[in-house]
Amino acid sequence: MAKVKYYYDPKTLSYRKIEKGTRYKIRNTAIFLASSALMGALFYLVADNFINSPKEKRLHREVENMKIQYDILNGKMNQAVAVLEGLQKRDDDIYRVIFEAEPIPNTIRKAGFGGANRYKKLEGFDNSELIKETAQRMDQITKEIYVQSRSFDEIVDMAEDKTKLLAAIPAIQPVANKDLKRMASGFGLRVDPFTKARKMHNGMDFSAQIGTPVYATGDGKVIRADNRASGFGNHIRIDHGYGYTTVYAHLNEYNVRKGQKVKRGEIIGFVGNTGRSRGPHLHYEVWLNDDKLNPVNFYYGELSPEEFSTIIQMSSQPNQSFD
């Protein structure tokens, strides 16, 4: 209930009740509304700046948690970069050196991304720089991993090819040491057993009994097994790939046929005395792209240093060849 107010009237010497008119009511209402609006504004400002709603508190926690997660993610990426750099260094300095391949240039490993701004959709947020930087690092690492993966694929291919090359290159004697009578003649100028003149001897002669096994000196494919080559009699030729071919001449008989694939150490024939020959022996040649090479340089697969030294000494003697 509103208070009743009075005022003293000196004319009547008495107190009279104050009557509140419309104007008074309007003024008081206006003052009340203005005060309420002012208090509401002040409350809003205080609440907006100093008091968070439950939803705002939840969002704030989520943002802080996101920052923590991004920090953790960047830490893991630092570790991934360190591991990746180690792989790249071993790739360039070890693996590619072994297989005689050029290292991958940094311009390829560290190449960026061209075109339009890939991270435009990440702009306009309070933490845009953090998010963009993390996305850029992730993309860069992903690309470097892809490049490294392709490099390892190449290394695997080179390793497989190297394995095939090592298996194909002639690397053993065609006649076992236990079956040899002697090293009859080596590579170089030798006395011809028929003309007695010195001429080039393009292979090595292994003296052994007729029927002694003859072995393929490397993996390959038999491209000839016949007696149609002048002076060679019954002979075999094996294509080892990579430009290498071996010849086995004056055989008594064959143990393979044309077109057959053979492995190093497989018996392909037997020592004989066919063709232009002065006694039972195997004439053995190694070709590289049609150039005749000294076979003695290809016996590293089974000889000890002492045995190899003996072979070198024996094959270097300027004696008479058997063919």
Rank of each mutant, 00 (worst) to 15 (best):
H201Y: 15
Q173M: 15
P174M: 01
R228S: 11
D192A: 05
L166T: 09
A167P: 02
Q173A: 12
S230N: 09
M158F: 09
A197D: 13
R198Q: 14
I155F: 04
T245S: 07
K199C: 12
D226I: 02
F232L: 03
A168Y: 06
H250I: 01
P193C: 01
Y254N: 07
D205L: 10
D239S: 15
L165G: 00
L165W: 14
F187H: 09
D157E: 13
L165N: 05
R190P: 12
D157F: 11
P174K: 02
K221P: 10
A208V: 15
M200T: 05
R237H: 07
A176V: 03
M183V: 14
E154W: 11
G186I: 11
S230V: 04
Y242G: 01
L165S: 01
D219P: 02
H201W: 15
E160L: 15
A229F: 10
Y242L: 01
K221D: 07
T246N: 00
A208L: 09
Y215P: 09
K164L: 13
G203E: 06
K181M: 05
F152Q: 05
N255G: 07
V214L: 12
A229T: 04
G241I: 12
M200W: 13
L189E: 10
E253W: 13
I236L: 09
I155Q: 03
D219H: 05
D219F: 00
I155W: 02
I223D: 08
V222R: 07
Q173D: 09
G203A: 09
K221F: 11
V222D: 11
A184S: 15
D157P: 00
N202S: 13
T163Y: 14
V156F: 08
I238H: 06
K164V: 12
T163I: 12
N234I: 01
F232G: 04
P170L: 02
I172A: 03
D161L: 14
P213D: 04
L180I: 11
L166R: 10
D179Y: 15
S185A: 15
P213C: 11
R237C: 00
D153M: 10
L189G: 06
I238P: 02
T217F: 08
A168M: 04
L251A: 07
T163G: 13
R257F: 07
P193T: 07
A159S: 12
A249E: 05
A216V: 12
G233D: 00
R198M: 13
A167I: 03
K178R: 13
A168I: 03
K181A: 01
A216N: 05
D239H: 11
H201R: 09
Q173N: 09
T245W: 01
N227Q: 13
G233L: 06
V156N: 08
D226E: 14
S207I: 01
V175A: 03
T246P: 07
A216C: 07
V214K: 07
K196G: 07
D161C: 05
V247Y: 13
V156L: 12
Y242H: 12
S151I: 02
G243M: 01
K178V: 14
K181R: 13
V247C: 08
M183N: 14
A208K: 06
N177Q: 12
D153N: 13
K221N: 11
T245Q: 10
D226T: 13
A168R: 00
T212R: 00
R224T: 10
G259Y: 08
A249K: 04
V256G: 09
D226P: 05
I210D: 02
